[in-house]
Design a protein around this nucleic acid. Structure first.
Lengths: 154, 154
DNA sequence: TAGTTCGTTCAATCGCAACTGAACGATCTG
DNA sequence: CAGATCGTTCAGTTGCGATTGAACGAACTA
């Protein structure tokens, strides 16, 4: 139960549905795969929530569907490799946002240059914005360098 | 306006109020400090929101209060050093959660040992849980090693 | 075929954080 | 002192994502 609470809070902190985290926490320490009904029962949530939660986790490759011969129910078990999980989460979630931010940043820089040429900003304003945008770009470049290393290390 | 949208979304992504991010984005590119009314006016939010937002940002050291001689209003400007900002955010926000998780983890491990001694879990179950908890501990230790490095690099 | 037992979908509800308008206290001005 | 101009606080509202019950379709069973 402590595990369930922790993973639930963690997911909530990362902007994911709390129930998904709870499901993962439950399965992470469960010695055998569990069915939808068992999950819903144990966590005291509706089967609908359990269904949507497991499907989300499966799509994130955090859960694996397990078919037990002679059983009609679907069973689920947690993917134990958290490092791989973190990597794929990074790739499919943070990486895109990050690339997007790069595009936005360079677009801002272009726009600033245009405004300067058009005389829409005076010299002091231009210098200030330029400095701030450059600092942003520098930080972005640092992140771009270190993230792959971090990815390997985990 | 693009900047405002970006920082707003970023804050929302990190679980902070969107309006706070918008305020920071506005001030980050503003060549001069702005007053509460100017902020509320520009962002089309109520002065109440602007007030709470700025106070939050000030408490996070993301904004600086600027007193302009002969002016009764408070003026605010963005703290430009994003690296320092990230560091202090890490220290006051993530660091505590992280330490907390360490305590929980070791507590879980202790409890597992107790259960084993009490014969509450069979050998197979114990081995499974033990392995999973050990993996968690290993990941936690890696994070503990790399985070300080990352903090220095930024 | 009729009746179970599954998982999924969807409209309705709920909870919670963010936002707002209005009231307030503090500080200045004439 | 009265009046104006600030920032802050707070009860009430809003908006949005998570959750639910009920309905549904598919796959099995007798």
């Amino acid at each position: 139960m402590e595990m369930i609470e922790s993973t639930g809070r963690l997911c909530q902190l990362l902007g994911m549905p709390r129930s998904a985290g709870q499901i993962y926490g439950l399965l992470y320490l469960s010695p055998r795969p569990l069915s939808l009904d068992e999950i819903a029962d144990y966590l005291a949530i509706s089967k609908a929530s359990a269904s949507t939660g497991t499907r989300q986790l499966v799509s994130w490759h955090a859960l694996r569907e397990v078919w037990i011969p002679g059983e009609r129910r679907d069973y689920y078990e947690a993917v134990g490799d958290l490092s791989e999980l973190a990597r794929s989460a990074y790739r499919s979630f943070f990486q895109p946002k990050f690339n997007n931010s790069k595009g936005r940043l360079s677009h801002l820089q272009e726009q600033l240059e245009e405004d300067r040429k058009a005389g829409a900003v005076d010299k002091q304003e231009y210098a200030f914005c330029r400095e701030r945008l450059d600092q942003l770009a520098s930080l972005e470049s640092k992140m771009r360098k270190i993230l792959p290393l971090l990815e390997k290390f985990l």
